[in-house]
Design a protein around this nucleic acid. Sequence first.
RNA 1: GCGGACGUGGCGGAAUUGGUAGACGCAAGGGACUUAAAAUCCCUCGAUCCUCGAUCGUACGGGUUCGAUUCCCGUCGUCCGCACCA
Length: 900
Amino acid sequence: MSLNRRTNRWFPACFVSEKPAMATERYNPRAAEPRWQKAWDEAKLFETKNEDPRPKYYVLEMFPYPSGRIHMGHVRNYTMGDVVARWRRAMGYNVLHPMGWDAFGLPAENAARDNNVNPRDWTYKNIETMKGQLKTMGLSLDWAREIATCDPSYYKHQQKIFLDFWKSGLVERKSAKVNWDPVDMTVLANEQVIDGRGWRSGAPVEQRDLTQWFFKITSMSQDLLDSLDTLDKWPEKVRIMQANWIGRSEGLLVRWALANPPAGETELEVYTTRPDTIFGASFMAIAADHPLAKKVAASNPELASFIEEVRHMGTSAATLETAEKKGFDTGLRVVHPFDENWTLPVYVANFVLMDYGTGAIFGCPGHDQRDLDFANKYGLPVTPVVLPDGVDAASFHITEEAFVDDGAMINSRFLDGMRFREAFDEVATRLSGVTIGNRPQAERKVQFRLRDWLISRQRYWGCPIPVIHCEACGAVPVPAKDLPVELPTDVTFDKPGNPLDHHPTWKHVGCPQCGKPARRDTDTMDTFVDSSWYFARFTDPWNDKAPTTLEYVDGKNGWLPVRQYIGGIEHAILHLLYSRFFTRAMQVTGHLNEVKEPFEGMFTQGMVVHETYRAGTGPNAYWVQPVDVNIVDVDGKRSATLIADGSPVEIGAIEKMSKSKKNVVDPDDILASYGADTARWFMLSDSPPERDVIWTEAGVEGAHRFVQRIWRLVSETAPALTGVAAAAAGDGAGAAVSKAVHKTVKAVGEDIERLSFNKAVARLYELVNTIQPAATALVDGKGNQTDAAALREAVEALVVMIAPMMPHLAEECWSALSGEGFVANQPWPRFDPALVVDNDVVYPIQINGKKRGDLTIARDADQAQVEQAVMALDFVQKALEGKAPRKVIVVPQRIVNVVA
RNA sequence: GCGGACGUGGCGGAAUUGGUAGACGCAAGGGACUUAAAAUCCCUCGAUCCUCGAUCGUACGGGUUCGAUUCCCGUCGUCCGCACCA
């Protein structure tokens, strides 16, 4: 009941509050939020002590890349994490909720080159800006533990970890095929190759063999796969994605003798998961990079040029999809393992990959679509060897579509009639007993799709690989006393290639072993390495001797695993998989005690999306920012115009906020005008957290109205509640309030625990709707002491419950209620189980499954009593027309269905 | 192609283990207060009809059940991930 009628538009001028005649002023987040943030800071409220004896709870959101400014995705992500952190604190946990910066990466180098700034300066300036933005959000973060991965105090330990991994056999230096951009003189990631060209230079990308550093993640493939089953607090989707990525398959290595071998060769080794179809084989296909192909190509220029053609084929998804199956007959032939008189041709084929299996396959056109396409193109025989169930063998032909399902073996000699498993085993057993060369002709083999993790990057702004290359001693680890190997600061970006390599002095160093002149490894580590252990570092970022402190990192009194990790789905595979590998590897190297899985609970939040706006027409059309658009709504029909000149704007699709579509909303604008609490509340409302949330101006205003409504409710009621002790009411008007609040306490706690923030928000709206009339009545002097006590309890509980979501407003309300200390330190309210159940139950009464009325009856009425009462109801009698019901179904506390 | 998710009012979404479909919010319409606007408060708000009330309604078509948004089979559509992995 604000009497302040003089103010007009509250934004932007509303907080310049005019003198209210009475009652309360509007809540002013611009004044209140910084005040509370400062108070929390001064009280060091969110600084966590490792020694605190309370049970530990580690909640973490994926740390940001310091790109310059935070975006709405960050606001959503960090709001969710903060709700969990604040709620867990209220539940009595010692909560670790840290923040840091994923600070290495290419954008800093690009900025350096384009704007002539130093990558370090650029990065730290961005960190400063973004830290300020995060602070205005009122997040309960322990900033004392802040880390930046680009800081030598962090990457020093990462270099130690690298060397320890190396010592433990988890690191390997080997030759690898990489995408090489000949203009930028750098290695490109697959996603940086677009249609076979470098994303920046546009130059055709070459495949080059370079000696690179790898983490041997494949040595843990099986465990990384098996342990997914233990991650029951992860989204099913993410676990499936990881399992697919690891890609385990069981098959057989089969060695085929060459009928006409070139010098130095005797056999061709293939990998197959379908040895049962071995009698359906009609050709062999090998990769263009297969040694045998190279050998034949040496004396066959036509084959050599075919191989060259395959090598230059693009690697993009689009190219692969449309690429025709192509092959080249090498002239070589192999002997069938079960028939020495049966030989098959060997082709080089463009669809066989060198780095999976052995780079060679046997083609079985009847039961593999690719092989069928290939066979049809080159006129190779197609023999069906698996018969679909219920199909007559005589009429079964394969022409355009391969049969890939299960069936019974045919045309397969001793395998005829067998099913897949039996045939597989029979072939495996028989061939294992035959010797070719000095080895069995077949071996069972489990194959993974997962490759070793290539960590070398020919870039400047990353963690230097702490290795020195000496002509005499080879690759030598940098001694521990010389760590960190720091990045030089005097670098230039004016020529293509790796600035570390160009640096005049940096790489020249004496060999730690023999002292002779040697040179540093000029590669830096993939930035995924930085983020693979930061969660462990947060547990004791002050330890300058070692990456982790065993006492605190995990185990009995340690923090890990992270109990709740929150981040984007885009990291569902690589970041999470690498972190899982690192945790295992850090345990092997003694940096962790026992924990294997770093993240016990994982949650992937949805994106923030927004309408798009387009002004102009035809070829002159251009995207417009939301802030430049005025939207009017007439009888539900929305139309838009440019604020600048009133010209029409087309309202387009709702899409992920992106710079290119300009449908971005700057968090700074929102925080400055509405305040952090409104932004936080809106982020939690309506949309389930795993789904996308649509950012709308109307929605934000709705959220803001609620902020004001809470403030009005609390501030207007507070005087009437002064000196009143909180207590639940058993009867009278207060009883309804008490029941509502206790039910809400129960429900909101359950909702937050499940991260169903949107439902918790709905419950809080309902509670406010319920207690509002009671509050108004009390203020008007219409309540008694019991009602006042019930209302005091309700309002206090409400304030504590909104505190994780709208912490500043909650503090302001708590203060208005003369509450002790910070609401951030208040325990979560307890609900009385007796108050969350009603004495009476309202049963919906169905007749033949359709609702016809209600019955209110005592909660403890037994089935017979309920049935009796139902039968006495008018509309039931009328529906039955005097006859006895066929059946009456009473579901206790739920529903009654009368079947007439 | 393979794998997965989803489909509910004008919109975002609720709905316990199969038990009142549409909670809560947004938008819209009407009203009160006001010189006026803003703010606030009250009412209406799935569709149709014969508007008392009834019928239909959770993408579509079937099925199981006393009862289906929920379970099963099929169809259509949308989105996401992987993609020549032998």
